[in-house]
């Protein structure tokens, strides 16, 4: 069962979430996004986590027609396997680069070393790109590390901080406010608007973190 709702005049949100995150639903979201992204009346089809936002030009397009298009695309979309790229992200954990590592470890009931090991053991999947330019929502975090987000977001989290929040993993592509917890730092640039392919990570990528001594 999907739910469609208005997101203003020129956008419709398809919500396919039913309980916990579902990987097969997410693959179907990607497939529907790919199909809709090529439709002439659609400006952008933006996958979220088990949901999809479709923007269109309301000056020239009737929302009812877009709704119908979304329903058709969803019905036709199969949970396709994207040829996944394997990507490695090197991380320096803890210390000055991971000020929340102790907090995450405490929440998980683990030592800091065991917390790092749990983060390193994960095989993550990029479910969606959004919030900030080049920010990847990665699923596959060890549930023990699923610390709820901070009640009050930090006003500034450094670019390249390796973070966990709300059961997901991420890496900051720029310095920005965030309520996620900082456990390390990478050296990889995650977004460069001047590259032909600006984002380092793409939807469907399989990500592994590696430890830099």
């Amino acid at each position: 069962m999907i739910r469609l709702s208005m997101a203003g005049t020129g956008a419709i949100l398809l919500d396919a979430a039913a309980g916990p995150f579902d990987a097969a639903t997410q693959r179907r979201i990607w497939a529907a996004a790919r199909a809709l992204g090529g439709a002439p009346s659609v400006v952008q089809a933006v996958p979220g986590v088990n949901n999809l936002l479709v923007t269109f030009d309301a000056l020239h397009t009737e929302p009812d027609a877009v709704e119908q298009l979304i329903r058709q695309a969803w019905a036709a979309a199969a949970a396709e396997e994207i040829p996944a790229r394997e990507v490695e992200i090197p991380v320096t954990y803890g210390g000055a680069f991971g000020e929340d590592l102790a907090l995450v470890a405490k929440h998980a009931g683990l030592s800091e070393e065991a917390t790092i090991a749990a983060h390193l053991a994960g095989r993550y999947s990029v479910a969606a790109i959004g919030a900030m330019a080049g920010f990847a929502y990665m699923t596959g975090l060890d549930p023990r590390l699923a610390v709820p987000r901070r009640d009050t977001p930090r006003l500034s989290v450094e670019c390249r901080a390796v973070v966990v929040g709300g059961g997901q993993a991420g890496v900051m592509p720029c310095t920005a406010p965030s309520g996620w917890h900082i456990i390390g730092r990478t050296t990889l640039p995650l977004f460069d608007p001047h590259r032909p392919d600006p984002g380092f990570l793409r939807i469907g990528d399989t990500v592994r973190f590696t430890r830099v001594a």
Binding site: A7, G8, G10, A11, L13, D15, A17, F21, V46, P47, G48, V49, N50, N51, L52, L53, T55, A128, G130, A131, M132, Y137
Partner: peptide, 27 residues
Amino acid sequence: FSHGIVPGTVQVPPAGQPIVQMADANT
């Protein structure tokens, strides 16, 4: 779950005071 939002979206965090997303809103 995290979902796409457009400028103009009126969000209501748990404290109950609205935040309107403007031009440079997170996507």
